[in-house]
Design a protein around this nucleic acid. Structure first.
Lengths: 334, 334
DNA sequence: TTGAAAGCGCTAACAC
DNA sequence: GTGTTAGCGCTTTCAA
């Protein structure tokens, strides 16, 4: 059967307390000899601690939950990967769950995670109307960190970017290049951060008194972007700001089908700067999210929250930047 | 503090045995009245079972491990999503871990998963030289299922596709379209399934006595595909078979930089049929993996393995199909 | 129909 | 320096 601490104690001819303390690095007080005997027995019998027994009267598990709205969106996959790398390095295992932006499912995940005594949970791009869910976490005193999309309830720990500024930057870039008939593909206000990007667009358009051409996509994926782009193209835009890179893929497709060449006939700008943006034809000009930094800061912050046991509120907003590639061209005057 | 079974027993004025049995649907023998009392108490006190205590003398955890070689490859993200959807539906939680094709890391994950008493583990696209890892799983009698890439040790449960046939199909399609100078971007033999695709290519080329032009990419991503494509283009190919869709992105880029238009000057065919393939410019002709089916079969198989407690070996090989889009064009005779 | 009590493997307060 | 022992919350055997 399974080797237990008892077997080690018998083998090393000491008490189980001794073994337990030595295993948990709390055995300074024991003689070198005792240490040696115990360690030998552990190796000899190939002892492995028992997860459930070890944690029975603890509330931690060296496991961290990560709920993501859409794992097939490379932006989230890249972010999850960065964070997991750091956390694994620190001895944690990550329970990565895909919610498909379904609030009920997110709550279900939180329940399951709480049941399993996760040490903390990340919520990346999840539904923002999540008061109930967050209060569950809070009442169990489990630290959580929101990523990408803030909650509708302001006082939450999280790492975000300045979406509004990103939207403005993207739009201003297009404006600078001489475009005026600029369309923007946004989404429902519920996807608050993405919606903010289009608010930035609106602000930039308003600043120079240009009429905005906003199109609301159903989801924030390629297909939605494609459909919305068709509508915008019909309205005669010369440039489109897609509120994420995935939707920009859809814009490229709609342009091609309409016989429009990017960027000669239609300029396109995205948002996120996923790895693939560089490999699109033409390479996509986009707003870069500092994914590595977001991940690094988030992981460190989580570790701090877990280890210090303080559930302090701290929000980090990281700056974005414009990444110019080849999908935007100066609009020629006629 | 936490509400325990003891509190319920006191509240309902029965013994803890009674409560335990009723909670675990083993209380047929109790009176309706007793059932009612217990259930009321559970609701009233908002009782939640204690994960660690409940599992203390069990070897299951309603958690399933999923090790994936590269979560940022949409193919794996899509596959993981399909499987997770089914498993969650069945009451399991998935421990999704990204290994970046690092064997040591995969072993580490297996250890951690075993430590946490996962009910089973999926290995998707992981390193095939994994005898040691698999034997750990086997000796603990934890069912596992390989996906995408078989192990170098034949007798493993798994769901795969016919990679060799896929490679042949892709190549034959190019041949049929009149191409003869066909390059193929493969990878190291260690990535056995992807390598098999290029073996299919080689077989198809050999069958009509055409000299193959194989280029080995370092990794199986966009950048590697890009570099390999440059080399192939320099050799004057008129068509390229990229052994996965991600590499095809790199081919598109290399073509563009070389001033070649796809498919007019260069035909390209991929492998996997990720969602994005449809949105590339031009839409990528590729070999379709039946991701939904793979996932469904794998999930069902895993559930069966877990529930029947039999660790039977069964390998499923699913057929692939050619998905014609617009990246392949008939080669004109000069 | 119901309950008492042993025990799962480990931790930690306390005693020596 | 080291060991005894009482739990942690739950399941399960056995007795009533």
């Amino acid at each position: 059967m399974k080797v237990t601490i008892k077997d080690i104690a018998r083998e090393a001819d000491v008490s189980i307390t001794t073994v337990s303390l030595i295993i948990n690095q709390k055995g300074q007080r024991f003689s070198t000899d005792t240490h040696a005997k115990v360690n030998e027995a552990i190796v000899k019998l190939n002892y492995q601690p028992h997860y459930f027994a070890k944690n029975l009267n603890k509330t931690k598990s060296k496991t961290i939950g990560f709920i993501v709205s859409e794992i097939t969106n490379p932006f989230f996959a890249e972010l999850a990967k960065v964070i997991e790398d750091i956390l694994v390095e620190q001895g944690y295992l990550v329970l990565l769950c895909n919610s498909s932006s379904d609030l009920a499912r997110e709550e279900r995940y939180v329940d399951e995670m709480l049941y399993r005594f996760v040490d903390g949970v990340f919520l990346a791009g999840t539904v923002s109307d999540n008061k109930h869910l967050l209060s569950k976490l809070a009442s169990r005193r489990v630290p959580y960190l929101l990523l990408d999309r803030p909650s509708d309830y302001s006082d939450t720990n999280g790492v975000f970017i300045d979406d509004f500024a990103g939207g403005m930057t993207a739009t201003e870039h297009l404006l600078q290049k001489g475009h005026t008939a600029i369309g923007c593909i946004t989404t429902k206000p519920q996807f608050s951060n993405i919606y903010q990007r289009s608010q930035g667009y609106l602000a930039a358009m308003k600043a120079i008194k240009q009429a905005p051409l906003l199109e609301e996509a159903g989801f924030v994926n390629e297909q939605s972007g494609y459909l919305a782009a068709q509508a915008l193209i019909n309205k005669g835009v010369s440039a489109i700001f897609a509120c994420n890179d995935l939707m920009a893929f859809g814009v490229y497709k709609a342009a091609e089908e309409a016989g429009l060449s990017v960027p000669a006939d239609l300029s396109v700008i995205g948002f996120d700067d996923i790895n693939l943006a560089h490999f699109m034809s033409p390479p996509l000009t986009t707003i870069t999210q500092p994914t590595q930094r977001i991940g690094a800061i988030a992981a460190r912050h989580m570790l701090a929250l877990i280890e210090t046991e303080t559930v302090e509120i701290a929000t980090t907003i990281l700056p974005i930047s414009l990444k110019e590639r080849e999908s935007v061209k100066t609009k020629e005057k006629r």
